[in-house]
Amino acid sequence: MLVGAVFPHAAVEPTTQDVRHFARAVEDLGYTHLLAYDHVLGADPEHHAPWDRAYDISSSFHELFVLFGFLAATTSLELVSGVLVLPQRQTALVAKQAAQVELLAPGRLRLGVGVGWNHVEYEALGQQFGARGRRMEEQITLLRRLWSEPVVTFHGDHDTVTAAGIRPRPARTIPIWLGGRSAPAYRRIGRLADGWIPEMQPGPELDDARAVIAQSAAEAGRDVAAIGMHARLPWTEDADELRAGFERWRAEGATHLSVNTLRSGPTTMSEHLDALTDAAAVLGPAPEHG
């Protein structure tokens, strides 16, 4: 199980120097990857009341592909989107942007994607919120073709490409991992994903989700054991609790784990890094157990 960190997007507006220092320090601590969240727009809760979502117009998020382009030259960490809201974006543009990051960081991009939940973003980006699940399935097929074929002709319900392609193309088909917390999402993971990013901790809900994924994979003729699992472990000052959480995920067979310091106390980049330093001391000097 490879252990990385979650990028603290909510920290007080970090500078270029802060981001560089944070990434290099995370790598020096022995973490293997950096996972970053995604949103393009935040909604004004006063206008969109009642608003009960975790993020709104006051929440800061870096544009993922720009951030990853910068980090590609800053660190040798694997770069993971956890998750990019794919259906609100132009598919060909995502293919181009992801290919560029992969070229700058060969073998180090893992594209986690999901359907998202913010209808306000979809409206502003000109995409249909209600069709997002169906669109993403189509997008995954198209992305893989654009990364692997020099010329693509594709006529789907949501995208059309006529005898065109991207160049330069990546040397490999970029791994696509899926998020989501619903039966349709789990069935999609079983059919299409290289891996999945659970949004829950070990327990009955995780067990039920894994059963749906396994059934869907079997129906698609896929080996469920080949589908990776990237867990997130909430950081806590309680070393025993942190270690126990780590061991639970290892017992579940997670292939990757990110220590998540968001919403757990730290607010500045420095405080998040201090928490990750403490976590590394608990999990080992180079947290690549298993």
Rank of each mutant, 00 (worst) to 15 (best):
P106V: 03
H272E: 07
D44A: 10
W177C: 03
H230M: 08
R250L: 15
R145E: 14
H256N: 13
E219Q: 14
E13D: 08
D223F: 06
E27F: 02
E247I: 05
L109K: 04
P204M: 09
Q139V: 06
L233G: 04
M136L: 15
Y37D: 07
E137S: 14
L2M: 08
F65L: 06
R191C: 07
E247P: 08
G116I: 02
P45S: 11
E63L: 14
G180I: 01
P8D: 07
A99C: 01
R232V: 04
I227M: 08
E288C: 11
W147C: 00
M200Q: 10
G156F: 05
L233H: 03
S216A: 15
R24L: 11
G221T: 05
K96H: 06
D194N: 03
A49N: 12
V259F: 05
A226C: 06
T141P: 06
A231M: 10
A73Q: 15
A95L: 03
D240I: 01
T160G: 12
A209H: 01
T160D: 11
T15Y: 00
E252W: 04
G42F: 04
L103M: 11
E27P: 05
L35C: 08
T236K: 08
D38V: 12
V120H: 13
L79S: 02
A11V: 04
L104T: 11
A95K: 01
L35G: 04
V40K: 04
R232S: 09
P234S: 07
T255Y: 11
F61I: 12
A23V: 00
P150Y: 01
G4A: 02
Y55N: 15
G112I: 14
T153W: 04
M229F: 02
G228S: 13
G69F: 09
S264Y: 07
V19N: 00
L2R: 09
V161H: 04
L93S: 15
A163V: 10
L34Q: 05
